[in-house]
């Protein structure tokens, strides 16, 4: 079974995480069982507005919804709850989303997911830090430490409620808190594209779209629906690692995800899994690769982008 991707959403109380989580639970299409089954892990059900009409079953700390989604509380132990989700006989989630409360350190959650016991079972898909633009102006003591922890592990920084602050405040926040190459997404009401939050959603949809219709920058079809643009690329030749890293480093921020497999020069008989989310790029050697030796990458962006330029830049990475 493929590893289940996990997205971690951190942020202080009031930053807008609940809005985000509710959107996921309510908008992931059920699509007659073909849709994504997302498990949302929260500290307390009170953080969610679960529509009781949608609930099919509810246990002490797990609620199943009509669309296949699951909500559960983490209670004292994340590891045990993750084990439980992975061992579900039916309805094993396609993706897991963990909300870290305003008091726990997301770095610890990220570390836990990388324990050897979860190798091949779980993979960190994205770490999203949601900030309330206004809250971030006066942070002290343990809250300041926690904010640093949240940002230091974030792949994507979402600045929420930007409509409530001045341009100057926003700039101050960026100057004081963000790091170079941070992938920043500004919003007013926690409106994030699902494809940014959930890699499964992005790649699942990109694939089905690929089958039916090839998008280009002029094509606006289904844009309102999917809120993203995608492009895929294939090639046989191995790539130069330094050039590839430089290529990803200089990608426009609007291209927030890329995923696929690559060949690298110097290790031509091996394949590497490439995963880019926001500012994080990981390239991991695949053991016991059985498939074809060729590059296959899918790029996902929040707005139209120059595909020709991207293709040319990619070709330049070929060894």
């Amino acid at each position: 079974m493929a590893a289940v991707p996990v997205t971690i959403v951190s942020g202080f109380l009031g930053a807008g995480k609940t809005t985000l989580l509710n959107r996921i639970l309510n908008s992931v299409p059920s699509d007659k069982g073909k849709g994504l089954k997302v498990a949302v892990m929260v500290n307390d059900f009170g953080e969610l507005n679960i529509d009781s009409q949608l609930v099919v079953s509810a246990e002490q700390n797990m609620i199943s919804l009509e669309n296949g989604c699951i909500c559960c509380t983490v209670e004292s132990d994340l590891i045990a709850q993750l084990r439980k989700l992975l061992q579900l006989r039916e309805g094993r989630p396609d993706a897991i989303l963990i909300e870290t409360s305003g008091v726990s350190e997301p770095s610890k959650v990220v570390n836990t997911l990388r324990y050897p016991e979860f190798d091949n079972h779980l993979t960190v898909d994205a770490v999203i830090s949601v900030l309330d633009a206004d809250q971030f102006t006066n942070l002290e003591g343990s809250n300041k430490r926690l904010a640093m922890d949240q940002l230091s592990v974030a792949d994507v920084v979402v600045i929420n409620k930007v409509d409530l602050v001045s341009a100057e405040q926003l700039q101050n926040l960026k100057d004081n808190w963000l790091f170079p190459n941070a992938c920043v997404y500004e919003t007013s009401y926690g409106e994030l594209p699902l494809a940014l939050l959930l890699g499964q959603q992005a790649h699942h949809s990109a694939q089905s779209e690929h089958e039916h219709h090839h998008c280009d920058e002029r094509c606006q079809h289904q844009h309102q629906h999917h809120e993203f643009y995608s492009m895929s690329w294939q090639s046989e030749q191995p790539l130069k690692i330094q050039a590839l890293k430089a290529f990803f480093h200089s990608l426009p921020a609007s291209i927030y995800r890329a995923k696929g497999f690559v060949r690298l020069s110097g290790a031509e008989q091996q394949m590497f899994l490439l995963h880019k989310v926001g500012s994080r790029l990981s390239i991991d050697r695949q053991l016991n690769w059985q498939g074809e030796l060729k590059n296959q990458l899918v790029f996902i962006a929040g707005e139209p982008f120059d595909k020709k330029q991207l293709l040319a830049d990619l070709e330049a990475c070929v060894a």
Binding site: N111, R114, Y115, P116, E117, A267, S282, I283, D284, R285
Partner: peptide, 21 residues
């Protein structure tokens, strides 16, 4: 890797990066 933690590694070479969790 030990059971309750891990050695962070370079994804390409597998060499430890120096971060131990």
């Amino acid at each position: 890797d030990p059971r309750n933690g891990f050695i962070e590694r370079d994804g390409i070479t597998g060499e430890p990066t120096g971060i131990l969790v």
